[in-house]
């Protein structure tokens, strides 16, 4: 069952036994970067950035809200990308990667909706308005939940991989359609609704804080996805010899520690 090494190219890491230790080595680094960037970003956002002229202090939630919303959309694209790679190249690792990303994407969706509601209450006077962005964000959350539910319900791992990949691609094709239709619907029904767009003149520190937070979200996503994918790899490949070797090594390390 062991496959021949594909030479010294980057593709070598497409093999699970090579990717597993690599992911283990990279994940703590990304986690560290995420922690540092989050501290810097929050410090910029909550202490350095000036108070907004029209919205006061409440606007500061955008330092979490906007990066989370960006990330939730971006993660779906990455998921669809790995799904397509998996279907075309038949690499199991790609499917695992898209499944490892899904919960994080859904989490960012929830964060974006939650912070949106917190911001909406003082600004619009309601936790929820049927704003185009909020609505599409909620629909995106449903797409994530559908993907997660489908991959978890199917017991045969290979069917789960492929079915999940297909629905991720179908979703990715539909996301622009959904977004466009919701926008259209929103303009018809609400007229000039309050938009989430930021004030046109944004202080440089505000932008900096938001970008730093966005990078923090990236690093966090990478760390969590790599951490999540490791046990998935072990579970899938548990018939392979290298997994046995890894497990004995880890058991020894645990034994040595206690």
């Amino acid at each position: 069952m062991s496959r021949p090494d594909r030479g010294p190219s980057i593709l070598r890491f497409a093999a699970p036994q090579n990717f597993y230790p690599l992911a283990g080595r990279l994940a703590p680094w990304f986690a560290g970067i995420a922690a540092v960037l989050t501290v810097v970003g929050l410090w910029l956002g909550f202490f350095v950035a000036p108070t907004d002229a029209t919205q006061g202090e409440v606007y500061r939630v955008i330092f979490i809200h906007v990066p989370a919303a960006w990330m939730s959309m971006f993660v779906y694209l990455v998921m669809a990308f790995w799904s397509a790679v998996g279907l075309v190249m038949n690499t199991r690792l790609s499917f695992l990667m898209s499944q490892a990303l899904a919960p994080t994407g859904a989490m960012f969706c929830v964060v974006a909706l939650w912070t949106g509601a917190l911001w909406g209450r003082p600004t619009w006077g309601a936790y929820w308005v049927w704003d185009a962005r909020l609505t599409s964000q909620a629909l995106l959350l449903f797409l994530y939940l559908g993907f997660i539910a489908l991959t978890r319900t199917i017991e045969d791992p290979r069917r789960a991989d492929r079915a999940g990949a297909l629905i991720a691609l179908v979703g990715a094709v539909n996301v622009p359609v959904i977004y466009f239709s919701v926008q259209w619907w929103n303009t018809l029904h609400q007229g000039a609704s309050v938009s989430l767009t930021r004030a046109p003149s944004m202080a440089a520190t505000m932008l900096a804080g938001m970008l730093v937070m966005a990078f923090a979200a990236w690093a966090y996503t990478l760390a969590v996805a790599l951490w999540r994918v490791r046990p998935m790899i072990l579970e899938r490949e548990r018939h392979a010899e290298w997994v046995g070797a890894v497990l004995t090594r880890e058991a020894q390390r645990q034994g040595g520690r206690t």
Partner: peptide, 10 residues
């Protein structure tokens, strides 16, 4: 239902 309802929205 969970899979297709979001796709039905448009």
């Amino acid at each position: 239902a969970l899979l297709v309802l979001p796709l039905f929205v448009p």
